[in-house]
Design a protein around this nucleic acid. Structure first.
Lengths: 217, 217
DNA sequence: ATTAATTTTTAGACAAAACTAAAAATTATA
DNA sequence: TATAATTTTTAGTTTTGTCTAAAAATTAAT
C-alpha cells in the first residue's frame, strides 16, 4: 500500500465516521486539498483492491478490509502522537505533521512494541481514541461543552478542532485534558459562556465551547 | 528532497567514505539493486541540485551540501536504531529495515529531541558512529579482530557486516558489543582463530574475524 | 418538466523514478 | 594500436499520482 492510498483511506474513514454515511468525491477532494478528478482516479484503484465500495456518482464507503486498514493507520498516527508528547516532550499543537509522516511506517511489530512502551494508551493527546491491535475502539461518552446547561461540571476529555491555533489558545487559557470545567452561565446576546477552569473564572465564545469535549462529573 | 534522492545520497556517502574516492555508476547500481541507467538519471538530477559532483563517465562524489545532507540521513538512521534497540527492545539484527523507513521522516526538531531522549549516543547498536547535530563524527580507533596478533586482547566495538545472518551468528556465540575478546591462536591451515570471549573459548573462521571490530585494551 | 447549476467522470498531459535496448565512451587485451 | 570487453549514457517506455479541460450525470431552480 502506498502513502497516497493510505491517506485516501484515512480521509474516507474520518469523513464516513463523522457523517455516518457515504462520502462524496468532492468532500474527499476538499479535505485532501486535491482535485476531484484525482479522487476519482484513486477511488477506482481502491475499489479494484476491494478497499472501498464505489459506484460512479454514488459516493464511497469503506469495505471491512478498507476500514481495518484505515483503523491501523489511525492507530499508528495516534500512538506516535502519544510518543511525541509523552516521551519527546512535544506540545499537543506540534505533533500532527510529524505523526502524518510516522503513520506510514510499515512494521506491525514496531507499532505493537511502541504501544507497549507507551503502556497501551487508549487516547491520544487530543483525547481521540486509539484503536487496539485488533482495531477495537473504546469510545468514551463525552459531549461538547457548548451543550451543557448552567451549573453542570465536567472534565475536559478532548478537542474537536485539533488545529495548532485552537490548541495554542487553550494552552494560553490553561485548559488542558483533565481540567475541571464548571459551566457558570450563558450570555444570551452572543452565546458566550462564563466558566471556571480549575480555580480560575473566564469567558469563552460559543465557538470555543463547541470545540471542547467534556465528560460530565 | 524525495526518499529516492535521499537513498542515493546515503549510498554515495557510504561508498565514498569506504573507498575514499569517487564512486562509479555501476557501484551505486549494484549497492542499490537497481540499473545503471536509473543511476545516471538520478546523478543528473542530484548534480542539477548541486548535491553531487558529476561529470559523464567520470564517477561521482558528494559536494559539501550533499555530504551534510547525507550525514543527516545517517544520523537519523542510527539514532532510530538506538531507539529501537534501547527503548523498544528490538534485537540488533531486526532494526535495519525499520530504520530505513524512519530515516526519511522530516523534522529537525524531532531528531534533536530524539537525540536528547536517548542521551546523545555516539554509536548505534552495531558500533557505527552517530553524527551530531552539526554533522561531526567522533571516530573511535578500532581494528578488525582478524588483524590482531596472538595474545592481544580487545573489546568488541562494532561489526563490519550488519546483515541479520551475521548478527544472529554473533548472538548464538554470545558475542556482543562490549564483549572482551582474547586472541589465543591462529590455525595456519584455514586461518581460523581460537579466541576467548569473556570466559568461554571458541573457534571462529577468518571470515567472522574480519567482520568484527575490536578496540585494543 | 425543462433548463440551469453543480458534481463527477473521462480524456489527455505531465513529472518522478524506474525499466529495456541500443549507442557511445572508456578500459582492457592481444 | 587496433580490437574486444566493459561501463556508462541516451532514447524511448512504463507506472503512479497528479493536473486541466471537456463531457456526462445528477441535483436544483424556475
Amino acid at each position: 500500500m502506498t502513502f497516497s492510498e493510505e491517506n485516501y483511506l484515512k480521509t474516507i474513514y474520518h469523513l464516513t465516521t463523522a457523517s455516518d454515511s457515504e462520502v462524496s468525491t468532492n468532500a474527499i477532494a476538499e479535505r485532501m486539498e486535491t482535485k476531484a478528478s484525482s479522487v476519482t482516479d484513486m477511488l477506482k484503484k481502491l475499489a479494484e483492491k476491494d478497499l472501498v465500495n464505489y459506484k460512479k456518482y454514488q459516493g464511497v464507503s469503506l469495505t471491512s478490509a478498507g476500514k481495518s486498514e484505515a483503523k491501523m493507520i489511525v492507530r499508528k498516527h495516534r500512538l506516535w502522537e502519544v510518543f511525541l508528547v509523552e516521551k519527546l516532550d512535544f506540545s499537543w499543537d506540534e505533533v500532527h505533521d510529524i505523526a502524518e509522516q510516522l503513520e506510514h511506517i510499515k512494521s506491525e511489530q514496531l507499532i505493537n512494541k511502541l504501544d507497549d512502551f507507551l503502556d497501551n494508551p487508549t487516547e491520544d493527546p487530543h483525547g481521540d481514541p486509539i484503536p487496539d491491535r485488533e482495531g477495537r475502539i473504546v469510545k468514551i461518552e463525552k459531549q461538547l461543552l457548548s451543550e451543557l446547561s448552567e451549573n453542570q461540571v465536567g472534565v475536559c476529555v478532548g478537542v474537536k478542532d485539533t488545529s495548532s491555533e485552537f490548541l495554542k489558545y487553550l494552552d494560553k487559557q490553561e485548559i488542558a485534558l483533565g481540567s475541571k470545567i464548571e459551566f457558570l452561565s450563558r450570555e444570551s446576546f452572543d452565546l458566550s459562556l462564563r466558566i471556571r477552569v480549575d480555580k480560575k473564572e473566564l469567558t469563552i465564545s460559543n465557538k470555543i465551547a463547541s470545540n471542547l469535549f467534556v465528560k460530565l462529573l
